[in-house]
Computed example of a mutant assay.
Amino acid sequence: MQLSSTSTGLSAALIAAASFGTSGTLVKPLLTEGWSPTAAVAARALVGGALLLPIALTMLRGRWHILWPARWRVLTMGVAGVACTQLAYFAAIQTIPVSTALLIEFLAPLLLVGLAWARTRRTPRPTVLLGSALALAGLTLVIGPGALQPVDPVGLAFALAAAIGCAVYFLVAARSGDGLPPVALAASGLLTGGLVLALVGAGGLLPFTATFGSLPMFGTQAPWWVPLVLLALLSTAVAYAAGITASEALGSRLASFVGLLEVAFAALFAWILLGEALTGVQMAGGALILAGIAAVRAEPSAEPAEEPVPYRVP
């Protein structure tokens, strides 16, 4: 049973990483044609949540009572895991390079290792420390060594806030004690986060613009809604549902390390779909991330509170 659960969790985590990895490629046509990042992310979250909503309602049929105990989990997922993470990231790249912001944001797995260290007061075992070092080295190679440079302290603070939000996403996703199905948490969290982002944009706190004509996409012209629907379906609905499923099955630590493969998948999709060269250094970085995941997986999780709670559709 445990082996089956772990295998399912790893499969879901890989699907989530690959799905999240398509976001840069799919959002690029929108940003190029005048969509602001806040508008694109808000639309992505709202449409993605709406696509998941019918499935979530079906899975919740007859069990509406579980929504109330899960309200804080949903709110935290939407506000911290979706909205604040995205807002902090986009605020960070206003003053620091994108590669640096990504490198800092994806320190979330190391934050989770540090949190477990502080909670248990036990030094992580060598396999976890080795896996952390390998994964960090691989992440640096995939994103680019140029990410390691002096940066504006305000931008650095926002990037660290994005990393904390990312870590909160994995922690909240793994806390399945309320019995809320992963798809229901993903749908409600995305709708909540999308609404927060829309309100921020409407309030003028961040630029919020969108265009609604044809745009270039993969060498041809497409209506504006085509990349948006693909972004909402693949990079959002599938990604969040699979990611939450993986976190419930694997625990936040291992799921977050597998999530580092998102940057490798992003580089791969940019190479296949946009013609952006995939270098040998990036491929070596991907191999190091895999080695880090293998090392972390070899260490049993010390997260008893994150054991999945079975749920059934009546």
Rank of each mutant, 00 (worst) to 15 (best):
I66T: 11
D178I: 08
L10C: 01
L129N: 05
G286D: 12
A267S: 13
V168C: 07
R297Q: 07
F90T: 01
G62I: 07
E276Y: 08
I93Y: 06
I93G: 06
W271N: 10
Q2A: 09
G259W: 10
R175H: 14
A264R: 02
L260N: 15
L52W: 08
P223H: 04
F106L: 00
T127S: 15
G286Y: 10
A242N: 06
L14K: 11
G189F: 04
L260T: 14
C84E: 12
L60A: 08
V296N: 02
L231M: 06
I293F: 10
G114D: 01
R71C: 03
Y89F: 15
R122T: 06
E306P: 05
R119M: 03
L273Q: 07
A266Y: 05
G194D: 06
L141P: 08
T25I: 14
A16I: 03
R175E: 11
E306G: 00
V82M: 11
A266G: 10
L156T: 05
L197M: 14
A184F: 07
A137W: 06
T25E: 04
I66D: 07
T25D: 06
L107Q: 14
L31A: 09
A302S: 13
L30P: 00
G114M: 08
A267R: 11
R73A: 00
Q149S: 11
I104W: 02
A287T: 06
G49P: 08
F218K: 10
V226F: 11
T140G: 02
A174R: 15
A12D: 04
L228A: 02
P308M: 08
L3D: 02
I15Y: 11
A222D: 06
T22D: 05
T211Y: 02
V74F: 01
G62V: 10
A302V: 14
P69Q: 13
A291G: 15
A56P: 10
A92P: 04
T120C: 01
L87I: 13
L274M: 15
A184K: 10
A135Q: 02
S4E: 14
C166Q: 13
E105D: 00
F257P: 03
A173G: 15
A264C: 10
V113K: 00
L228S: 01
A241I: 02
G155C: 01
T8G: 11
P300L: 01
E262H: 12
S23L: 04
L53E: 04
W35C: 09
L234S: 05
A187R: 14
I66S: 09
S7N: 02
A246M: 07
G177Q: 11
E299R: 15
L274C: 12
T245Q: 15
E307K: 14
P181Y: 13
G203N: 06
G9H: 01
R119F: 00
A255M: 02
A232N: 09
I272M: 12
G34Q: 12
L30E: 00
P181S: 02
A88M: 05
T95E: 04
E307T: 07
P153D: 10
L180H: 14
S176I: 03
G138S: 03
V113N: 00
P145Q: 11
L130N: 07
L260G: 12
P181A: 09
T100H: 05
L171P: 00
A266M: 05
V183Q: 09
